[in-house]
């Protein structure tokens, strides 16, 4: 009774809005007809449907164009640089003395060695700690522990790098100098360790994601064969998640290669081609900072050199990404 009254009330209220079809049969009305009526009235909704994909494409193009623009600028300015300094000298010369008036030497190797030293130390610190934390979080930690620890890790990843830089210079370096008395104030070891600390959460968090997405049925299968929890983690879960784990490590190492503030603050500005981690270094990024701070005028060889160095850096990260894709595909365990 009541629902019938409500229906007729509703119909009466709609009458004003609705078209002829309903006026002809005042007792009942068809939803399909109402939809048709609405559609006739509302023209613009269909044109919105047509515009939206176009707008979305436009925004996607913005980022693609920006990337292309950056690469283009890099290449053009790099070519200008190689017009003045032969590529062979750039790749093989052992010294990087761009500021010397009389005997300027542009050999990229000392800067590359600085970057590699720091990156290697960072990887040695971050990969084991990051993976161990990922295994703990994904396989051993209770839900509660994970819910507490993971956000903290992610906060660690959000600390500005300049803070890490001063942490390296004013906290880590003095401690290291207690242990290794020959350590210089600016060195490769301290920023390397601190970059390692910085990228650890990245490896831990991303690896944990890919390890927790390994289906439980696989853990059960392994446990039912009498495996211990550790064997399950190491021999079943980790291999099954390897593509995600490798991707996280490579992403983190790319970040270490491109890291700027920490090495600029704590690494020094002495490009040297050696494997000594206790003395002052200069990385590719730190060199770009040094020049950008105003030591060189527009159009000088030094000015163009930062593009060449930037391009080298770009090649490095590109290689890392390709390597990651290759490794992930090669060792992928599909499930």
């Amino acid at each position: 009774m009541r629902s019938a009254r409500r229906a007729s009330h509703l119909a009466m209220r709609m009458k004003g809005v609705l078209t002829l079809a309903i006026q002809n049969s005042p007792k009942s009305f068809s939803v399909q007809e109402m939809i048709a009526a609405k559609k006739q009235k509302k023209g613009p909704s269909s044109s919105i449907e047509k515009i939206v994909p176009f707008l979305l494409l436009l925004t996607a193009i913005v980022s693609v164009l920006t990337t292309l623009g950056i690469v283009f600028t890099l290449i053009v300015e790099t070519f200008t640089f190689f017009g003045r300094i032969p590529l062979q000298e750039f790749l093989t010369a052992q010294k990087w003395y761009p500021f010397s008036e009389t005997q300027g030497s542009y050999g990229i190797l000392p800067l590359v060695s600085g970057t590699l030293k720091v990156t290697l130390i960072a990887a040695i610190v971050a990969v084991p700690i990051g993976l161990a934390s990922a295994i703990f979080l994904s396989e051993y930690a209770s839900d509660r522990t994970r819910r507490i620890i993971k956000p903290i890790l992610e906060v660690l990843a959000g600390i500005p790098t300049i803070v890490y830089g001063f942490f390296a210079l004013t906290f880590v370096t003095p401690i290291l100098r207690e242990i290794i008395p020959t350590l210089e104030i600016f060195n490769a070891l301290s920023p390397g360790i601190v970059i390692g600390i910085m990228i650890t959460p990245m490896i831990a968090s991303l690896s944990e994601d890919s390890m927790s997405s390994v289906p439980n049925s696989m853990r059960e299968g392994a446990l039912a064969l009498g495996s211990t929890k550790f064997e399950v983690s190491l021999k079943v879960v980790l291999p099954a998640a390897v593509s995600g784990v490798v991707a996280s490590i490579v992403l983190a190492i790319s970040r270490a290669i491109g890291e700027t503030m920490i090495v600029a603050v704590a690494g020094g500005s002495t490009p040297n081609l050696n494997w000594d981690i206790t003395s002052s270094i200069q990385t590719m990024t730190a060199y770009i900072v040094q020049v950008s701070q105003g030591d060189a005028g527009y159009g000088t060889t030094i000015y163009y050199s930062i593009y060449a160095v930037g391009f080298t850096l770009f090649v490095f990260t590109l290689i890392m990404n390709l390597l990651a894709q290759f490794i992930a595909r090669r060792f992928r365990e599909e499930y």
């Binding site: 696989m218 059960e220 299968g221 039912a224 064969l225 009498g226 099954a240």
Partner: peptide
């Protein structure tokens, strides 16, 4: 529990081979 499961094998509802 590992000792027990070494003696007692199990086959599950859905096939769950390792991705190897």
């Amino acid at each position: 529990v590992e000792e027990l499961r070494t003696k007692v094998g199990m086959v599950f509802q859905k096939p769950n081979p390792f991705p190897k």
